[in-house]
Nucleic acid binder design. Sequence first.
DNA 1: TCATTAAATTGTT
DNA 2: AACAATTTAATGA
Length: 241
Amino acid sequence: MVPQFTPCQDPSLHQRRRQPSFVELQSIPWLSLLSPGERVRAEAELVVADAKSGDFICRFGKPVTYWFGVVEGLLKMSADNAQGMTMTFTGVPPGGWFGEGTALKREPYRYNIQALRNSVVAGLPLDTFHWLLDHSIGFNRFVMNQLNERLGQFIAAREIDRMNNPDLRVARSLAALFNPVLYPGVGDILRITQQELAYLVGLSRQRVNEALNTLQVQAMIRIEYGGLRVLDLAALRSSIQ
DNA sequence: TCATTAAATTGTT
DNA sequence: AACAATTTAATGA
């Protein structure tokens, strides 16, 4: 059955925030692009919080407070359309940072971000985000690269939505999650259950299970308990039929 | 550290 | 949707 995520209080994350640990800081890909001075300030202002499964990191219409990144776990980016249907844009695995578009314009969020399972989320205060944009070339390069790569993902996502072959849908969605530029924290193994993947792709768990086994036979992935290992990312991206 | 038990995840119909 | 099989996590001696 489809679990109804219990809607939770928005300020909870803000209240549960704490200082990032050394290991958590290491998982933040753009810190190494900063100059020593910039880095000191960024690390001082970064916060992390534990999000429980079902927690909303941000909601449509709420003002932007942080630029967010995933340290650990898995998030889901989605929006509600006019018909009241929830459509999932993408999953956000470890190493992924998002919301720079709305952060740049200081606009309210235009989508929801929800934790698919217990996760650790990092947040950079909006003022610090803008300060880095004004001072750090390395940071600007990262954000620009991020925007460009995500644009490619959204274009690919439109094609995925139009595909009727479930095996292909799963393959392409997986390829997106294994994107090394957007999600450097993923590596060879993506921690995701078949149920979670089913939510992201919009298929039943049974069908996802079947598709994954097909992809495994084709030596594109290896199914592991609670996760998947990529063997051939290029094939996931471009396989036909 | 090991054995037992509970919980989570996967495989199958 | 239901159930069985498998894997991992938690517990306590």
